[in-house]
Simulated scan of single mutants.
Amino acid sequence: MKPQLEQDKRRVRTAIDRCKRELEQVRLSRATQRKDRKRAPVPNAAIVGYTNAGKSSLLRRLTGADVLIEDKLFATLDTTTRKIALPNKQPLLLTDTVGFVRKLPHRLVEAFNATLEEAALSDFLIHLLDASQPEVMEYYNTTMKVLAELGADAKRTLIAFNKIDKVGDSAALAGLRRHFPDAVFLSVHTGEGIEELVERMAEFVATGMVTREFLIPQSAGSLLAQLHRQARILETHYEGEFVRIVAVLPGRLAEACENLLKEAAAKNLIDPTFFTDKLIATG
């Protein structure tokens, strides 16, 4: 009996070590992808929640992405990010994350936290819950605890209850609606509530938008093209070798544009004094 127990322990340790190595590769891959996204900043939302809440199914429903969907613990280890266009044509990146669980083995906590960095770095969260589970409030509390450990518990969060088509107790569903009056109630399977979720996502993105006025060299064609792709241009005025643009755009993109212009000024590609006088924050 004892030799068998030792063999089982070794198998478990081997499996955990293999899982940790895979997660480290995931972490490195995600870090590379984040660097790529920073070059062309787009608002990002991370879908978080207890395991099997339907996060991967929701991502596929919203984006048409071919993502792994399994009723299995830790089926999603490597997070998946896809782009969608909201009703106002504003692009949004949606990221699926590993399912949260209670009492995660200590040796895996750090490794799994690495895969959840997307939640901490996103603009807002979509906290998906399985409304059909009797333990739904326990799952909610577990997810909030993990988010607190990641420093993401104060992040703007859109709460959504999935699988309402599977809830047999109407009183339980009514109780959730009372307790979470701002939540979206939906079914990924039937499509009910999906349109409302997308509208709420657009509202979340809109609250993260700012209005900025830039004076950009006409030679900075890639920056001008990026603004026309990802911002809502309100005004355009040509002034010699520069273009004055007033635009409504995501905060991340505004910051990136300002940094690029500041770098150009530091390299004397733009007169620093002229740049300081003319770059105006209006929102």
Rank of each mutant, 00 (worst) to 15 (best):
L269W: 15
E258F: 11
A40L: 09
A264K: 05
L116S: 02
E241H: 14
R34F: 13
E263G: 06
K267I: 01
E192R: 09
K2V: 13
R244G: 02
R30T: 12
R102T: 05
C257G: 06
L86N: 01
E203P: 00
K103Q: 14
E263I: 12
V136M: 11
T157R: 06
D153I: 02
S122G: 03
R82D: 15
L94F: 04
K2M: 08
L197A: 08
A281T: 15
G49F: 05
P87L: 04
R177V: 03
I69A: 11
G191A: 03
N44A: 12
A231W: 12
A53I: 02
V188S: 11
K155E: 07
A281H: 15
L121H: 13
T157H: 05
F214Y: 09
Q90W: 07
G191S: 10
H237T: 14
K72P: 01
R200N: 13
F204D: 06
L128N: 05
E118H: 01
R200E: 10
P91K: 00
R34M: 09
F112H: 04
R37Y: 08
K267V: 03
Q25V: 02
A65E: 03
T273H: 10
A154K: 14
Y238P: 12
E6H: 09
D153E: 10
G283F: 03
K38T: 08
L28N: 13
I164R: 08
R178V: 11
L116R: 10
F275H: 15
L147Y: 07
A183T: 10
L23M: 12
G240P: 11
L186H: 00
E118R: 06
F112V: 14
A111Q: 04
A148G: 07
P181V: 07
F161C: 01
E135L: 05
A220K: 04
G251I: 01
R39D: 12
I84G: 00
F161Y: 08
T14H: 07
V136L: 04
M144H: 07
R30Y: 06
E196G: 02
E203G: 09
G54E: 05
A281W: 15
K155N: 08
T207S: 10
R178C: 02
K2Y: 10
V246H: 05
T282I: 15
T79E: 10
A114C: 00
T236C: 00
P217K: 02
G54I: 00
P250R: 00
T273Q: 11
L125Y: 05
L173W: 03
E195M: 04
R232W: 03
Q90V: 02
S219V: 14
L73Q: 15
G151N: 08
F180Y: 15
L116T: 07
L121D: 14
D17I: 14
D169Y: 02
L108D: 10
Q218P: 01
F214Q: 08
T282D: 07
E135A: 04
V12G: 00
T81G: 04
S29T: 14
A281K: 09
M1L: 12
F204I: 02
V136T: 14
H237Y: 06
L150N: 13
I47Y: 05
A154Q: 14
A15R: 09
A254Y: 08
L260S: 13
E258I: 10
